[in-house]
Write a protein that binds this DNA or RNA. Structure first.
Lengths: 83, 83
DNA sequence: GACATATTACTGTTTAAGCGGTATATTACG
DNA sequence: CGTAATATACCGCTTAAACAGTAATATGTC
């Protein structure tokens, strides 16, 4: 599933459960009402900072996975952020 | 950990493992070199579409979790996208 | 059907994201 | 140390994201 479509349905579901309209939720999240509509419509060009506010307001966590993720976690523990 | 910092370190780690410089990787991901530098620097205002290109190029998957996530998955199976 | 509420759509304005070019700083390696 | 590669930084330029306002649909609820 495309990332923006997934975000779209997740945000809408969570917002509806919160009982807030788009405009009300926009206020609590600290963003404009337009961008809530856009996100729920599946807009691909939203800014990360905007999504972050929405996710925080809805108590949604984001995580990442990949074939290299175990090695990445290991490197963090060892304090090798890069190399 | 802040989302943009997490993305920053994950992207840098994966790119380094790929053996590409920022400029080379930018080309393969289909974005400008500047935005790769910005992402690895922890920029918060990157666009979702840009991150998407980077994640695809690095084979990184994104997933979401929340207290309502089980109910959300259920509602998908039942075909109730909203309500 | 009438009426309230919410969503969708469109507007103009402000701000900045992304871009390539380039210049400087940093890092790696012989 | 020198030098090549890479990363970091700054530059204008173009495009569009986010915004509030408003208007038009849609979705209820009585």
């Amino acid at each position: 599933m495309a990332l923006e479509k997934e975000i779209s349905s997740i945000v809408r579901f969570h917002r509806k459960k919160s009982g807030l309209s788009q405009a009300e939720f926009a206020k609590t999240a600290g963003v404009g009402k337009t961008v809530i509509f856009d996100i729920e419509k599946g807009k691909q060009t939203v800014r990360l900072s905007t999504l972050q506010k929405v996710f925080i307001a809805l108590n949604i966590r984001v995580s990442f996975s990949s074939p290299l993720m175990d090695a990445f976690e290991k490197s963090k523990e060892e304090g090798n952020a890069n190399r």
